[in-house]
Structures are given as C-alpha cells and as structure tokens.
C-alpha cells in the first residue's frame, strides 16, 4: 500500500516536472522567435555574402515552420543533444558546464554571507523591536534593497579594490594564477582546496569576496527582514513564556527555542534567494567581469542564439526544481512533524 502510493506520488512528480519543462521550453522558444533579431547574423556576421547567409540559414533550420523547428529541438533534447551555440560555436552543454560553476561559486559564497549576517541581524532586530538596533537593521535592509547593484558594485570596487587595496579586482582569478590547477568541479575555490594549491585558493577567494558581498548584501536585506518578522511572531507564543518562567537564560530562549522554530519557514526564504542568485546576476557579473550564467544567457538572447538560451533556461529550471525538492527534504529533517 505505502509502496503503491509512493510510486504514485513519484509518477506525479515526474509528470509535473516534465510538464513544467515543456511549458518553460515552449514559452522561451516562442519569445526567442518573436524577438526582432536575425539569428543568422550572430552566426555569420553582417558582412557575409548572400550565399553564405542563405546556407547558414538552412543549416539552422530557419526555413522550416515554427512548430517543426520546436519539434526538432524537442526530440533532440530528449536524446540529450542540446545543440551548439551559434555565438561560441561550442556545444551548449559544454558552455553551460563552463559558466555555471562560476555562478555557483559566487552564489554560494553570497548566500553564506547573507545567511551568516542576515539571520543574526534579524534576530537582534526582533528581540530589540523598536529600539535603535531594530532601526539600524531596518535602515541597512532598506539601503540594501534600494541601491542598484550595478552602482554598489562599482563603488565597492572603487573603495575596497582601487583605494584600499583590500580585495582583488574584476575577474575570477589573477592572471598569474590562471590555468595552474586542474579543473575538477570548475569551482576554483573547491578545486584549489582539493589539490592543496592554497595560493590559488587565496587568490580566488580575494576575487570572489567582493562580488559575493555585494550580492550577499541583497539576500541579507531580505533574509534579515523575514527573520525579524518570523521571530516577532514566535516570541509572542506561549512556549516562550513557559521557557522564560522555567528560568532558562534569555540567550537560550531566543537562539535555541524561538530561532529553532523559525528555521523551517526561513529555509524556504533562503532557498529562494539562493535559487535567484544561481540564475546568475547579469549586472554584478558585468561589473566584476565574472564569466557566469547570467551573462551567458543575456548575450545569447541578444544574439537570438536560441540553442544557448533554451539550454540556459533548462539549467535555470533544473536549479529551481532541484532546490525546491532539496528544501522539501530539508524540511523533513528540520521539522519532526513533517514525516
């Protein structure tokens, strides 16, 4: 019986995921075709003579009706062939495996910063509701929300890189450190640590810290606001009063009992902001010359390079669905009731 229902729910999940992807692909495909940009231009440039242009147009299958183009694409995707990017002339799948680790690295460090500062800040604000601590956190959050990331990134570079020399500048690695380590995961911090190349690690870390802090500031603003409101709600509950009556120290009441109960809804908040960062952030990537997914998808879209755009979209879809599922699993671990 339980095996049956498990199997049934499994089938349902697979079906939903498949439908989501189909919808995602269809919409992206249609948008790509509506954009008034000639994809052949990206492939051959503006100077190509007529016969070269025509040959490439046929090669790209652009003479066929729209539904047929989509069908051809879909059947190829199902066999694991995502096609080649017109712009980079690589297989889309190779391109994505090249750019995604850069984004993963940035997003993970950013989320770590956002969580490790955002949650304590939110808790402190909730405990000191209405006092100066609360105001400070509120203003910090507001500033984080309202300053354009582009400007913040440039100012950060100007101050911490150009003036103070505390961090490294735009780019993912210093020139002297490039190509020194074997790419295993593509995440430089991880690869260098695995291979014990600590100088490379240090260089990569000093490159990632500023863009990650800029992005982390945004998730921090969001996470601290959410933590604050969740906490205020919890602190009003009766079990908190009971805990206090029992004579537990205030620190224990706040950080163990109240925060422990807030973690479950907070997980969703963190997961969503992480997923958002994993899509790649075009502006931050541009300012910091960070070769990530956001720049890749944007460049591809602006060249009507549909294979690359669709590949990137699938990647984003996988991230979102993956993180959602992961959150579900974590829920069960954190919340004993959700069995």
């Amino acid at each position: 019986m339980t095996a049956m229902s498990f199997a049934r729910s499994g089938v349902r999940v697979v079906f939903t995921v498949a439908l989501t992807f189909l919808g995602l692909l269809l919409v992206t495909f249609l948008i790509g075709r509506v954009v008034p940009i000639d994809p052949v231009l990206a492939a051959v440039g503006d100077r190509a003579p007529a016969e070269v242009y025509e040959r490439v147009r046929l090669e790209l299958g652009l003479d066929k009706p729209l539904w047929e183009q989509f069908w051809i694409y879909l059947t190829k995707v199902l066999t694991g062939d995502f096609g080649s990017s017109v712009l980079t002339s690589n297989k889309v799948i190779d391109d994505i495996f090249r750019v995604f680790p850069a984004t993963l690295e940035l997003a993970t460090v950013a989320t770590l910063i956002g969580v490790s500062v955002g949650i304590p800040a939110g808790v402190i604000a909730a405990v000191n509701q209405g006092k100066w601590q609360d105001q400070v956190v509120r203003v910090l959050g507001l500033v984080g929300y309202s300053i354009p990331v582009f400007w913040l990134g440039l100012m950060g570079l100007l101050l911490f890189y150009a003036k103070l020399g505390l961090v490294a500048g735009p780019g993912r690695q210093g020139v002297a450190f490039e190509d020194l380590i074997e790419p295993i995961t593509g995440v430089v911090l991880l690869d260098s640590a695995i291979q014990g190349e600590w100088e490379v690690f240090r260089d990569a870390f000093s490159h990632v810290i500023l863009p990650a802090a800029v992005l982390g500031y945004f998730s921090l603003a969001y996470i601290s606001r959410m933590t604050r409101s969740f906490m205020i709600e919890q602190l009003r509950q009766e079990y908190i009063v009971t805990a206090r009556v029992k004579g537990l120290s205030e620190r224990r009441v706040v950080w163990r009992h109240a925060l422990g109960n807030v973690l479950v809804p907070l997980l969703t908040v963190i997961a969503l902001s992480y997923a958002n960062l994993l899509e790649g952030s075009v502006l931050t990537e541009t300012v910091f010359a960070w070769p990530g997914l956001g720049q890749y998808i944007t460049n591809s879209l602006l060249s009507a390079d549909m294979n690359a755009v669709l590949g990137g979209t699938i990647m984003v879809g996988v991230i979102f669905i993956g993180i959602n599922m992961l959150t579900d699993v974590l829920y069960r671990l954190v919340d004993p009731r959700a069995k």
């Binding site: 490294a168 500048g169 735009p170 780019g171 020139v175 010359a289 720049q295």
Partner: peptide, 19 residues
C-alpha cells in the same frame, strides 16, 4: 593574456591599479 572585461569602468579600475 587578453581578458574579457565588458564594463569600461571596470577596465579603468584594473588599469589604474596595475592589474
């Protein structure tokens, strides 16, 4: 080594800093 830095303001910072 030629690196893609799309933002001219970032190029300027890198140059003035000597990177």
């Amino acid at each position: 080594v030629v690196r893609h830095v799309s933002e001219p303001a970032s190029q300027r910072l890198l140059l003035e800093k000597g990177d």
